[in-house]
Amino acid sequence: MTQDTHNKNTDNTQLHNTADCDVRQRFFIQDSPVRGDVVRLSRSYAKTIAQKPYPEAIKRLLGEMLTAASLIIGTVKIDGRLSIQLQSADSDSLLNWAMAECDQDGIIRALASWKADNDEQIEAWDNMTQANEAFAELGAQGQGVLFINIQPDGGEPYQGIVERSHDNLADCLAHYQKQSAQIPTLINLASDGLQAGGILVQMLPRTFEETMEAEQNQDAGIDDDLWTRLTILTRTVKASELTTLDANEIIYRLYNEENVVAPDPVELTFGCTCSREKCEMAIEQIGEEEALDIVEEQGGIFEMDCGFCAEVYKFDKDDVQAIFAE
């Protein structure tokens, strides 16, 4: 992608200022069934990976996963949360699991578990610098498990299993979208350990009425070359551009010769859903006797910490007894 495109057909693109680099910016190609989103993460991503001493490759993988969750939730009509989860199928894998979540309000969080129990494992992580290297720790292609989990507020949860069809997260998710929803999808993801970004473009099916109108009105005819053209353009975007450029600068550079329309962007922020009330519910599941034993073993205080945000909730003997007295 070159700077030359920046100077063409300015009037065709109606975009907003997204100088704040924690946004999801939707866009449409006018008079076509194409929609897309660009996600940029900076402060929210930095807060996420600051919670634990992640190896560099896992930092970058979590950046791609956060970006992907923020992109894909824009394609589903729910009030709730969407998460992407990776689970290793190999006990010798250095990556146990990883997950990233985004809700409909743009609140994101992520977490990963990895092995670094000896010098050999630590050195192995030190030699990895890319997200795809951490992704490869799931095992060979076809191994490991990828999930998309959707939790509607007050509704039944849904889990989709993503085929490990490629050696990177973006292509696996694009393949899943095409296979499960029958919607041609392009996904590019990037993370440099400091910032993250990505783009998703989809060709939505036309309704029967839209198809009839296109056939009857030559001016509203289907652009048969549109998806091929957009595919070529989208594949030109560089990882460094996805992690450093403003969301609408990316859209403009790629598609400035198309009629692009963009609504207001959605702000993305780091946040956590943990609470003292949820910890109390977990203690109820443990049972009073076992919870009191833990209090005694831990010197009079039962501490429960959140891996996402590092918040620590403390319960003494009186607190535990109060939970079961209610």
Rank of each mutant, 00 (worst) to 15 (best):
A214H: 01
L186T: 04
E241Q: 15
S180A: 14
N217Y: 06
F208W: 10
Q216E: 11
L230R: 00
D171T: 11
T231R: 11
D224C: 06
I222G: 11
R229Q: 08
E241G: 12
R235W: 12
Q216W: 05
I199F: 04
L194P: 05
G221C: 12
A181Q: 15
E213W: 01
R235L: 11
Q182I: 01
L200M: 12
Q218H: 08
L226R: 03
S191H: 01
E215G: 09
L230N: 00
A170W: 00
Q202I: 06
D192L: 00
E213P: 00
L186P: 02
S240K: 09
E241P: 12
C172V: 03
I232E: 13
T207W: 05
A174D: 05
Q177A: 11
Q218I: 12
D167C: 04
T231Y: 14
Y176L: 00
T231F: 12
L200D: 04
E209A: 11
D223H: 09
D246P: 08
G193D: 03
D171C: 07
T207K: 04
R206T: 09
D224R: 10
Q182F: 09
E209C: 06
I187Y: 06
S240A: 09
T231W: 14
I222Y: 07
L189Y: 02
R235H: 15
M203N: 11
T244E: 14
T244W: 07
G193K: 00
T185A: 03
C172W: 08
